[in-house]
Design a protein around this nucleic acid. Sequence first.
DNA 1: CCAATGTCAGCATAACTGACATCA
DNA 2: CTGATGTCAGTTGTGCTGACATTG
Lengths: 151, 151
Amino acid sequence: MQPTRRSFPQLFADARRWFEEGLLAAMEAAGATPVSPTQAQLFAVLDDHGTTVSELARRMGVTRQTAHQAVHGLVDAGLLAQVPDPGSARRRLIRRTPDGERAHRQATAILQQLEDRLAERIGREGVDALRAALEASWGESTAPPPSAPPR
Amino acid sequence: MQPTRRSFPQLFADARRWFEEGLLAAMEAAGATPVSPTQAQLFAVLDDHGTTVSELARRMGVTRQTAHQAVHGLVDAGLLAQVPDPGSARRRLIRRTPDGERAHRQATAILQQLEDRLAERIGREGVDALRAALEASWGESTAPPPSAPPR
DNA sequence: CCAATGTCAGCATAACTGACATCA
DNA sequence: CTGATGTCAGTTGTGCTGACATTG
């Protein structure tokens, strides 16, 4: 069907879009505060006890400034709040507000539904294999081994 | 290890980045004309006999205008050319130039190497399962089940 | 003083919508 | 005329670099 075998980056992008679109559509249908894909990702890397912006940036693989911007938007939306870190005055922990908590649980539930629906289509074992392969340690993609030393 | 189980969108994004970064780094190391991720994707959906901008846009899942812009950049870079469609004057087919052909083969080879390297890390069967699951027909992600009818 | 953090500001890129001419 | 296509223009959003104050 395809002119050439679809590339892996292409496949990953399509797969991601499948989940993203389903998630955002369902959230909107549920009347939740609209969030951008970036902000949704931020929620995904937030942990429960509060995190600094710098740490969020590292988890998302972006700069502090970018993470800061995303956080700012979510603070304005009332889903996140910054609280001073009791242990260090220069840090400010990012935590979910009650509204943010609700949105997060909602999003988690929707993602689970999407995963279940996917399991109906391609089989539970397919989904499990998918997750297993994606969660495995892939190591570095750059720096080709001694077989092909660039220069 | 993760605060919460990493979400599928997150995993897909990481996986895609793994390939994208490896590809772009290797291309650059090989001294190829630098292309943006978007332009790389455009190459991936190009077929050998020439394609219209509108068709490329559909395959990439973006608007015609966006695809047009990406094509424009690659035409300027000398990797693509627009040739009139012999069968229809309003269409202009996008084809690879000889330079573009070289770059395409190079990219394909690198992606194959990346896939092989991944197979060394997570096993060939893991890679095969990954591709099989991604290439399967996932159907629609929107249209929530009767459990959550909007409105 | 140095390093990490949080923040503000400006810039580049890539996506979008709008508009319009062309042609089957 | 209608619809699809190619193109130009403007806008928005997201990520970047640069810069700087604060604090351990």
